[in-house]
Design a protein around this nucleic acid. Structure first.
Lengths: 328, 328
DNA sequence: CTGAAAGCGCTTACAG
DNA sequence: CTGAAAGCGCTTACAG
């Protein structure tokens, strides 16, 4: 029985009806100052806390946001988690955290979110099937893909303008006189990797500049191993564009271990601008994802859909910017 | 109305009572195979999902665990978050994630956890006042401090055996012929920093070995700046014991920037064994915190207290081990 | 094994 | 502004 104290107890002590207690705590209703004071005093004395579940049962609303995350080893995401938690807390919402091991979120996770009738769902670095999306739609639960992009007719997503960013990185490296480039992708089936590759190679092709592609997995170890293999093959490009920072750090370490000087012999550009990119040992040139803005836009969408559900889809892309450091 | 489908709808379609539907989904009750099949078929057809809130209202239990975390910038904690989420998911529990900016968790966070009548609370790198603890006790909500320690009469906590670990680190460095040491602490008011300092300096005093103490803040930047200042003062010790890995990486980078060779001129030992400690560029010797075991013990405690609340306090300490790499 | 009924702690028309 | 009453979607004695 929660802590044993319910609205009826408070009502009795305050000498008012349960309705009045409810009106004081739920807000939006008119209560006389006198009643309010009596209720608050009684509640304080008894240590009353409204039961969120009973409330949800009536209003059919919750103040819980489901946040689904996969890549907790990439420092980018804990940062994102922190920002979301802080933003939503300020708005009175709590975060139900879901960790998924797969690129696509699983039925059990979705069911859990539905069980709790969450007010909204944010999926940060995974995708989900169309069928699952329907489950959320049917229940009028707003859903947004964060840092991923999918069919714009069916999903709402928020990401950096990856195409523009990678084009500009290509132009930047060309201007730095690099004439033989390598792109290291994360998991190939992610929209971020695909778009970053597309923008980058588009520009290189236009300028008839040689490039190669390598597939990795968005992890430090992946970047490290990929670079190591290239070094083993004796084929160091004049510049690397690596699909995220944490892999780029792996690339830098592999280069350093093999005595390949950066930025003189080869250059490296990452993506994200995680804190570690600024560490003096790395000093990585990278593309900054405007996390705060992305989070803010996501929150705006979710809140507006909570207030009035439209189920609108689409994609918001936010411009980032190049952070020039010492690896180029 | 969740998705509009409730137990009554299912009951009608299946041609049974609402009670039977409940018995099928709640489990633990006896239902004939025939009824079960009819109910399941109807539920499947309608897409029925039991409302967790209505359920909680009756049972006065939830399957939500509150997890409070502060230092999301230290890679140790995202790892911990992931482990907890995975463990609890396997047991049918969900994680309500709370991020706190302060060393001590705030009333609003506590209230939120109480609002949701969480089944248990885990606080990973913060502490809380005795008053707040009483709030949880009163509601029979089990509470554990993870990687922190407090008054053993009042709290239940789980940590590495920090005293033993730091003693053994001291002995290890003495054996390596270091005769002038520095201890860099995290925030001074955390039990981890205090105990690691205590064990370390105890042994050094016993052996009449010179040491100095420096206070930092558990961040990379903190470690970096602290080391930089020491270097500026021209006073490099023969070994550093740094209270966590992420600070130790900062120390290593400061040393490297100033051309101070590790492990020849000075040695560095960290604490935690985060993934990055193994990165080839760092290769940090450190003390491994047995995260999986610590998580497992925490889960065991929470679950046993959920099943039968005793409110027992105490402290479980788990032995870690020295991971010897290239910085010593 | 099964159904009718009570009740968990709230909010919200409704009437005054 | 306020109270009495209905009802949100469940679980659980109770009786059969």
């Amino acid at each position: 029985m929660s802590n044993g104290i319910n609205a009826k107890d408070v009502a009795k002590l305050a000498g008012v009806s349960q309705s009045s207690v409810s009106r004081v705590f739920f807000g939006g209703a008119s209560v006389s100052e006198k009643t309010r004071k009596k209720v608050l005093a009684a509640a304080e004395e008894l240590g009353y806390i409204p039961n969120e579940f009973a409330r949800s049962l009536i209003t059919n609303k919750t103040r819980i946001i489901g946040l689904v995350m996969k890549g907790v080893n990439n420092p980018f995401y804990p940062q994102v988690l922190k920002e979301f938690t802080t933003h939503f807390k300020g708005l009175g919402y709590s975060i139900l955290f879901v960790h998924t091991n797969n690129d696509e979120i699983q039925k059990e996770d979705v069911d859990m979110l539905l069980h709790y009738n969450v007010a909204g769902v944010i999926i940060t670095d995974a995708t989900l099937s169309l069928k699952v999306t329907e489950d959320f739609k049917k229940n009028h639960i707003p859903l947004v893909l964060f840092n991923r992009k999918a069919d714009q007719q069916k999903f709402f997503s928020i990401s950096t303008n990856n195409l523009d960013a990678s084009r500009r990185i290509a132009e930047y490296l060309i201007q730095k006189e690099c004439r033989d480039m390598a792109y290291i992708s994360g998991s190939r089936n992610t929209s971020t990797s695909i778009e970053r590759e597309k923008g980058f190679t588009e520009v290189l092709e236009k300028h008839h500049i040689r490039f190669r592609r390598f597939e990795s997995d968005y992890s430090y170890e992946g970047g490290y191993e990929t670079a190591k293999e290239m070094i083993g093959n004796g084929s160091i490009p004049s510049a690397f564009f690596v699909a995220n920072d944490i892999m780029a750090l792996g690339v830098l370490d592999a280069l350093r271990e093999n005595g390949i000087a950066v930025p003189t012999v080869t250059k490296v550009v990452g993506f994200d601008n995680i804190n570690m990119a600024a560490w003096p040992i790395y000093n990585l040139t990278t593309w900054e994802q405007p996390v705060s803005q992305m989070v803010q836009e996501t929150v705006n969408y979710v809140i507006s859909e909570i207030n009035e559900y439209t189920g609108r889809s689409g994609n918001i892309e936010i411009e980032g910017k190049l952070i020039e450091r010492k690896t180029t």
